[in-house]
C-alpha cells in the first residue's frame, strides 16, 4: 500500500494552513509531523483521515484490489477518546470493533479481549468507562487499533496523557503494525521512539516554500 499526497493545499476557516505539501509513504513506514502549534499538524491529519477535502492537490491511496475511501482505511486517534462513560470498557471497545468492521455478529470476542490485554486493561473490562482514569481512557481509545484492522494509523499527539509504561505499549503496537506492512503517521511535540521514522516539519517555512 502506498499513500501519496501531492501539492496539498489545506485551508481552514478561510486561512491557508498547509500550502503545497507533498508526501509519500509506503508499506511499513512511519512519518512524524512536527512543528509549532498552529502549524497545521492536526489539519493535515484530518485531511488524511478524509474529514477535510483539500483546497488543491490530492491525497490518494494505491492499494491492490481495495478501492475503499481514505476514511475507511485509517484509524484516527485524535485528542479526544471517543469513549462513553456509561458503557463498560468492553462495551465501548466491542461497539467500535463491530462498527468499524461493519460486523454485528458478535464474533471477534477473542480479538477484543486480546486488544484489551495488549493495552493492559483486561482487569477493567467490566468497569464503566466513566470510572477510568484519564490515562486508562486513553489506552482504551488506543485499544481500538487492535480491535479493527486498518492499514493506516493516524495519531494526533499520542503521547498526551500516557505514562512511560503505556507509551511502550503504544510503540510496541506501532512496531507490530509496521512489521505487518501498515503505515503510521503521528503529529507530535515530543520525540517519539518510532524506528526509522521520516519527519516532516510543518511551519512558516513550509508555507513560504
Amino acid at each position: 500500500m502506498l499513500l501519496i499526497a501531492e501539492n496539498l493545499v489545506l485551508s481552514r476557516g478561510g486561512r491557508t494552513v498547509i500550502d503545497g505539501l507533498s508526501l509519500r509513504l509506503s508499506n511499513g513506514e512511519a512519518l512524524l509531523l512536527t512543528g509549532a502549534n498552529g502549524a497545521g499538524k492536526t489539519t493535515l491529519l484530518r485531511a488524511l483521515a478524509g474529514f477535510l477535502p483539500p483546497a488543491f492537490g490530492e491525497i490518494r491511496i494505491e492499494n491492490e484490489n481495495d478501492d475503499r475511501e481514505l476514511g475507511e482505511l485509517c484509524h484516527f486517534v485524535g485528542h479526544l477518546d471517543g469513549i462513553k462513560p456509561h458503557l463498560t470498557a468492553m462495551e465501548n471497545l466491542a461497539f467500535w470493533g463491530a462498527y468499524l468492521n461493519g460486523d454485528s455478529s458478535g464474533n471477534g470476542g477473542d480479538r477484543l479481549t486480546r486488544a484489551l490485554n495488549k493495552f493492559g486493561l483486561a482487569a477493567l473490562a467490566d468497569v464503566p468507562a466513566g470510572f477510568l482514569s484519564a490515562g486508562q481512557k486513553r489506552r482504551l481509545a488506543l485499544s481500538r487499533l487492535a480491535a479493527a484492522h486498518r492499514p493506516l494509523w493516524l495519531f494526533d499527539e499520542p503521547t498526551a496523557l500516557l505514562d512511560a509504561a503505556s507509551l511502550t505499549l503504544l510503540i510496541d503496537a506501532v512496531n507490530a503494525h509496521r512489521a505487518d506492512g501498515g503505515l503510521v503517521i503521528a503529529a507530535t511535540h515530543l520525540p517519539l521512539a518510532f524506528k526509522n521514522a521520516k519527519e516532516v516539519r510543518l511551519g512558516p517555512k513550509e508555507k513560504a516554500a
Partner: peptide, 14 residues
C-alpha cells in the same frame, strides 16, 4: 461531537 466519537464514526464503513 464533544467526546470525539463522531470522528471515529466517520471513519467507519457506514
Amino acid at each position: 461531537y464533544e467526546d470525539g466519537s463522531l470522528d471515529v464514526l466517520t471513519t467507519g464503513p457506514l
